[in-house]
């Protein structure tokens, strides 16, 4: 009975002032706040984003704003600069609004990488 109520009001809402979803978000929101609560759960956020992004790419859907970059930042914090740069580039290519920030971050990371390589030599 309660389920019907939920379904009916959901239907009514959709019929009334429908705003169809533009994007798939998977569990981004929920995994993000659980990872804030418990930093050990960042790995779950990474997996969620990974799955969501590969699904969207398969279905040829546009990945929601920010998600490539959020995944990139998780890799950055794990120390995987190459992967982070790749993902920031994807964010920039998908969303022109992000181009200033993403380009600056990529440049910084590449400069850091060069410095490190220089030191190693």
């Amino acid at each position: 009975m309660l389920k019907w109520g939920v379904a009916l009001s959901a239907l009514a809402m959709l019929g009334g002032c429908a705003t169809n979803g533009l994007y798939q978000w998977g569990g981004y929101e929920q995994k993000l706040y659980t990872s804030y609560k418990d930093p050990n759960k960042v790995e779950e956020l990474r997996e969620t984003l990974e799955t969501l992004i590969s699904q969207q790419q398969q279905d040829k859907h546009k990945v929601a704003p920010g998600l490539y970059a959020e995944l990139g930042t998780i890799y950055l914090q794990k120390g995987d600069t190459n992967k982070a740069v790749d993902l920031y580039a994807k964010e920039r290519d998908t969303w022109p609004e992000s181009s200033g920030l993403m380009t600056a971050m990529i440049k910084n990371l590449e400069r850091l990488k060069k410095d490190k390589e220089g030191e190693a030599r």
Binding site: T19, Y33, G66, T73
Partner: peptide, 20 residues
């Protein structure tokens, strides 16, 4: 913070990644 991006992006704006 985690609950803010979705409604704004779904309204049609580019939302900068909040955690980044």
């Amino acid at each position: 913070l985690a609950t803010l991006p979705i409604p704004i992006a779904e309204k049609g704006y580019y939302v900068f990644p909040v955690n980044t």
